[in-house]
């Protein structure tokens, strides 16, 4: 699985410039806040259209500004876990988890909802509403929702940043388990050293919109 990103995009006061070929199972995008990590993730997701450049996933052109190609986010078959969860407040947990399945046909032998629910330990929350969940519970549901939509590429934007240290320590092993079980290519934005070292096998460091290192 490869993700090629070669873009130039003006974002407020600075310019994001990246030319990357990501091949790891879990690639960490790291760097100080304001470095352009989330913007780059949004460009890969199709939530932001770059000023110039290309995004190619496994040979599939998702964006090519010179050829006028832009595949919208809902056709990219991605899963996106946002920093703030963004659960749907008017649906219960079960409906939130199954939301992606309304639009994408599940593929045989891939991700079974029941297994994701068990791995994340959220079976007892299914009838609850997002408003009645703790921060850690909401974030586990958000991870489950992205996975159950059966994506080809998982994007995670500091999924643990809004939680305290105890919650982070509780959820991190769940993410590891999911990685080892489903082998889903993942781009993981974080500035936390510990998360990156445990999860990633490829690390890209950004600063002020530029790539300053890749291991």
């Amino acid at each position: 699985m490869t993700t090629e990103v070669s873009v130039r995009h003006r974002q407020g006061s600075f310019i994001i410039e990246a030319d990357l070929r990501l091949e790891g199972l879990v690639t960490a995008l790291s760097g100080p806040s304001g470095a352009g990590k989330t913007s780059l993730l949004n460009i890969i997701a199709g939530l932001v259209r770059p000023d110039e450049g290309r995004v190619v996933f496994n040979g599939e052109v998702w964006c090519d500004t010179s050829a006028g190609v832009f595949v919208p986010a809902h056709k990219r078959r991605i899963g996106y876990v946002f920093q703030e969860g963004r659960l749907f407040p008017h649906f219960n947990v079960r409906r939130n988890l199954m939301y992606g399945r309304w639009f994408r046909k599940a593929r045989e032998g891939r991700i079974a909802p029941q297994e994701v629910i068990e791995l994340l330990g959220i079976g007892h929350l299914l009838e609850r509403r997002p408003g009645n969940l703790s921060g850690g519970e909401a974030q586990r549901v958000a991870i489950g929702r992205a996975l159950i939509s059966d994506p080809d590429l998982l994007l995670m934007d500091e999924p643990l940043a809004s939680l305290d240290a105890a919650r982070r320590a509780e959820i991190l092993p769940h993410i590891e388990k999911l990685r080892d079980r489903f082998h889903l290519p993942t781009i993981y934005v974080s500035h936390m050293r510990e998360e990156i070292e445990r999860l990633a096998n490829e690390i890209v460091t950004l600063d002020a919109g530029k790539v300053i290192g890749k291991i």
């Binding site: 939530l47 919208p72 809902h74 946002f82 703030e84 939301y99 639009f103 994408r104």
Partner: peptide, 12 residues
């Protein structure tokens, strides 16, 4: 942002 989340889950 909630609407954007829905679009990443496949909703047009």
């Amino acid at each position: 942002r909630t609407e954007a989340a829905a679009s990443t889950l496949g909703a047009s």
